[in-house]
Design a protein around this nucleic acid. Sequence first.
RNA 1: GCCGAAGUGGUGGAAUUGGUAGACACGCUGGACUCAAAAUCCAGUGCUAGCGAUAGUGUGCGGGUUCGAGUCCCGCCUUCGGUACCA
Length: 946
Amino acid sequence: MQYNPEQLESRWRKEWEDKKVYKVDNESAKPKYYVLDMFPYPSGAGLHVGHPLGYMASDIFARYKRLKGFNVLHPMGYDSFGLPAEQYAIQTGVHPETSTENNIKTYRSQLDKIGFSYDWSREVKTSDPSYYKWTQWIFLKLFQHYYDLDADKALPIDTLIQTFETAGNADVNAACTQESIFSAQEWKTMTAGQKDEILMNYRLAYRKTGYVNWCEALGTVLANDEIKDGVSERGGHPVVKKAMLQWSLRITAYAERLLHDLDKLEWSDALKAMQRNWIGRSEGAQMFFELDGTSEKIEIFTTRPDTIFGATFMVLAPEHALVPAITTPEYKAQVENYITYVKSRSDVDRMAEAKEVTGTFTGAYAINPFTQEKIPVWIAEYVLKDYGTGAIMAVPSDDERDQAFAKKFGLPIIDVVDKSDYPGSTLHDKTGKIINSGFLNGMEVPDAIEHMLQKIESMQLGKRKVNYKLRDANFSRQRYWGEPFPILYDKDGVAIPVDESALPVVLPDLKDYTPSPDGRSPLARLTDWVNTSDGYTRETDTMPGYAGSSWYFLRYMDPDNSAEFASKKALNYWRDVDLYVGGTEHAVGHLMYSRFWHKFLYDLGYVPTTEPFRKLINQGMIQGMIAYAFVLKEKKDGSTVFVSKDCIDKYQPSDYIKTAVHIDFVSENGSGTAHLNAKGIQALCQWRQEYENAYFELKSGIYPASYFYENTENIKLYVASEAGKMSKRYHNVVNPDDMVKKYGADCFRMYEMFLGPIEQSKPWDTNGIEGVQKFLRKFWSLYYNENGLHITNDTPVKEELKVLHQTIKKVTDDIERFSFNTAVSAFMVCVNELKRLNCNKREILQPLVRLLAPFAPFITEQIWFDLGEQGSVHHSEFPVFDPACLESDAIEYPVSINGKKRDVISIPSTASQEEIQDIVLQSPMVQKWLEGQQPKKMHHRTRKND
RNA sequence: GCCGAAGUGGUGGAAUUGGUAGACACGCUGGACUCAAAAUCCAGUGCUAGCGAUAGUGUGCGGGUUCGAGUCCCGCCUUCGGUACCA
């Protein structure tokens, strides 16, 4: 009986769905285990073979845990709000909901074919009102809470208001942006608008002025990746920074806990390091410099207070609030010019010219509090508005950027740290001896820092402060396809939360998806929706992509609950994600925001755990091979001319361009000899009408397309082949459906696992998939002969048991350490061995089916059924390793002399240390290499695997 | 620049704690079966020398520690990913 994957896979796919084999309950006597995949955005291109890599790994693990007796939650859903659908809507007029639904259907059918064990009854979509109701609900909670640093948790804003009413804000210790102090009396006399403004400085979801990339020509706000070389990617129009009132989330309030709790997590050190760097904690001093001739002070943050004697000038961010006030009349024009210049510069620009220093003098002078010298105040774009206080004391002797600035503008440099005792140390190292610094002279840098911190505090010039690189993220998007904010504004512009009972605020329908001319979202045009009957106006911004994905893993626990985002019971049962599998691209975005939201919900008592994702595995990316053909810019008789790579040296690089051609046309792809043969050239000519009459320059001459239909021998148009993104634009997307169709899902799954370690990136290459296909046929042939099932109930011999249990041990260990490629090869070894032994005994082959089931769910289910077993193999038990089966009579001892293997000797396992040494010393080979001498030392090592 | 990951046959990769380097698979070579092909099976396959037993050599490069190093230490080189003037 032949192995026919197509037939048996469709049979079991249907059977599993009908019998709801993968449905999981929130109640069970079994221990829970939660395996989560990263939320996919259902793009129009569908899944390519790279996407399911992580899904396959997590599916194997979920199935393994299920067989190990766990109640496994393994859900899937869609992050279905997003920009591409909106862009598509603008171009085609198709409602984002319609295109998204279609894309989801494609995704679902692609996922189903691969045989994942998802409980689809728990599917969630972020764009579903019953889902985003709770995204809005969490937003309201953020809006209605502030972070109390004494309690070290989020507390209701109402208790803060009570404090304001009785005692003002002087004693409030909160994560906030409120700077001035007010009394209870002052609070009471404030207008509603003033109170709202102050509360915004405390709320965890708050509004502040933020800068967006504004493109006047397109009349829209652009995301960073929609900008190329400082102009819009579409159309190449200029982009400027524009100030707009934006919603933000105060993630900085949680910086310390986000940093600290990383220690609890089983994440890779690499990923933890990325998060630590992103949070960027630094300790230093916050201090004030007086301005000469005014009452204003400049607040700065420094990690190097010990270098203050070397501070010869100050630099403010161009956007700093003090700039207009301190600029003297004679420098006004110059400063304004500079600010205009900075506004025109995109983040991309700044990156490209990182080395060049720019800035201008404001005419103002500050007083160095220790030297009492007047030092000039400059503005420069290298000082960032949002980091620290947006102002620095510049110490050109001890900071590279300050030094470059001082050199360019001729500012004085005073050496304050003598590093001669620390050869090789850089300016970044806090080492050296302080010089030219009055009372600090002679101190080592760390001591001097501590000394200065005390001095600064005692002189009341400032205080110790911990600063974070982490910034509050912009939470507003001027877009249509996202969650509407549950916020209304009254006539004074005071933000009023929508009542919980009125949630969700449903995203209204729209015909025209282009943005409103003033840069607001398309929703602003729906005046009927914006202006409510009771005189309020609605917020027209929508939430960003990460809103819905910051808490989705909680919704899976109880997806149909309409009274809560998830019931207490469900949350207390499932608690947190035990295993999360996904790519590193989410290292600092999604993974940081989810942790932040989760901690917030924990503070409010809604979730029982402080961290959402206990263990995290990063899967590598599967890249595509991109094949570039060389095309001359100048056409020949109006037709395209392709040049073989081995002829391209004749031309100047400016004469030709590289064009990605469809990967299916290319032979020997991925090697240095990648080329199109005659068939490939034929296919290329038929691919695009413009290539129909193309010319091809090969080593032997230039030929028209027609030539390759008659002459097919030895034709090679060489192309450049390189690894890169798998993407529509490179014509190198491989659809998993095609793989499943050709080889079957089991083969496809096992091949992706066999490719290499899960966390490693590699280009997609089907060379070698036949090896896995052969393995599955061989595996099948252990159970069936030409007439059907062919299994005996004979008692297995020792050797057969040894093969089985060796495999059980190896596969179990490999699954536990996520080494799926070696597990697959262990199966291959096992099947090769059993085949050699002609084993067809039930006692060996039945456990083997259970062992392979997580990897190849279809073939094993079929065999399980044919073996006459009850129920699904996926509800059976994972085989247990029996060490007794591995005991053998003799052990092969490799013998090394001076670290080189010289002999292999088989010695009975009963032999003692001394006996082993005797046997070894008597071996002729050992005798030969000892050359008559006695060994100085002998080491006997037991084998680790037995 | 900084942070992170990785360099092993013709190719993907294995070697889990310092102990037989190259498992498993692809490819390639030869053979069996076949009229032929496909499929399947058998043998070989790091490099060099040798008919062979065998010997030498070999994990990016240069040193070191050790009885023994792909693995540990020091100094480099290369590739990939992230980041961007972070005071």
